[in-house]
Amino acid sequence: MESILQLDTDILIYLNSIRSLLWDNFFWIYTSTIIWVPLYVAITYVLFKRMGWQAVWVLLAVALTITLCDQISSSIFKPLFARPRPTREPHLEGILQLINDYRAGRFGFVSGHATNSFGLAIFLSLIFRKKYFAIFIYVWASLNAYSRIYAGVHYPGDILGGIILGTFIGWGVFKLYEYITIRHPKTNSIRETKFGSEVQFAVAVGVLSFVMIFLSSKILLKIMS
């Protein structure tokens, strides 16, 4: 176990050292909730456009997914394992490079960002069943998870644990949603819902958000220099 934990630390130090001011700005903006509001609105629009009022059931399932991911990772796993974040380890003080001196909370296993991102990504990819959307949402989730290593607030092991937990929760909530919609006589089964090119609109909004984040990062870099 000691050798595994040391490897986890070594990987963190190496990955955390690969950085620049541009990517500092990028990941700081990237992990802001408000920057992704247009994407969330676009996904909601696509759901209602194809499913009508029954999209409410999907949104409730999304809310359940996020709630379970957040509460299980933060209220159960973190206090249960009580693994200090790297930013709370005295022997890593001065070694890790932080963004705006952000240190986050006391415990880090598992990563809430990784859990939430992959829980949502798994659930939505199973709802839309479009390869291009799956690629986009998994890239989005992966960058969100990696940003925590880049910022020095999580070990890679915290991220891996969050990805696994989020995957199980997202898949489990989808299976529950699928079971309920199949059995409920007034609800169309998700198997009967065929999403078309409108999903491309949500992906386009997401890609545009990526571009805006990168351009904003470059503008900030010029202002800072």
Rank of each mutant, 00 (worst) to 15 (best):
Y30R: 02
A42R: 07
S142Y: 12
H91S: 13
P38G: 09
I127Q: 06
N144Q: 11
F123A: 03
H91F: 14
V173A: 00
L120Y: 12
A204S: 14
R103D: 05
I4D: 11
N188H: 09
L59S: 10
N116M: 08
A61E: 00
R103L: 07
T33V: 11
A202H: 04
V46D: 06
F195Y: 13
P84A: 10
S32W: 08
F109W: 08
F168S: 06
V37N: 06
K130F: 07
L64Q: 02
V139R: 02
G52T: 05
T181H: 05
V207K: 11
R103E: 12
A121T: 01
M1F: 07
Y40T: 04
I18K: 13
T33N: 15
T181A: 13
I95L: 14
F109R: 14
D158Q: 11
F107W: 15
Q71F: 00
D24E: 06
V173K: 00
A145K: 04
Y155S: 03
R148C: 12
K186V: 06
A61C: 11
H113F: 05
L160Y: 09
D24Q: 04
F168H: 04
Y155H: 09
W23P: 00
R19M: 02
P38A: 10
D8W: 01
T44V: 12
T167Y: 06
S189Y: 02
I122N: 10
I135G: 06
F77V: 14
A141M: 03
Y14H: 10
K49N: 11
Q54M: 11
V110I: 14
F123V: 06
T115N: 07
K222T: 14
G105H: 07
H91Q: 09
S225P: 07
W171A: 15
M212D: 05
I180L: 11
P84E: 12
T181R: 14
I34L: 12
G108S: 15
F128I: 05
T44C: 13
S73R: 05
N100C: 04
K130V: 10
I13S: 03
T33A: 15
Q200F: 12
P86K: 06
I35W: 15
G157V: 03
S73N: 04
G196Q: 08
S117W: 00
Y179A: 12
S111M: 08
T167Q: 03
R85E: 08
D101F: 07
V139I: 15
F77S: 07
A42N: 08
G152Q: 08
I13C: 05
I122K: 09
I163H: 02
D158H: 03
I182T: 10
E93L: 11
A61F: 11
C69K: 05
A141P: 04
R191N: 14
F133W: 13
F210P: 10
F210Y: 15
I213V: 15
C69R: 03
W57A: 03
Y177V: 02
F123G: 03
R183A: 13
W23Q: 00
Y40D: 04
L15H: 02
A204W: 12
L7F: 11
T44M: 13
L59C: 11
F174L: 01
L160T: 12
G119V: 01
D8L: 04
L80G: 00
L39C: 10
A145Y: 11
F123M: 10
I163D: 00
G161R: 01
N16C: 06
D10S: 13
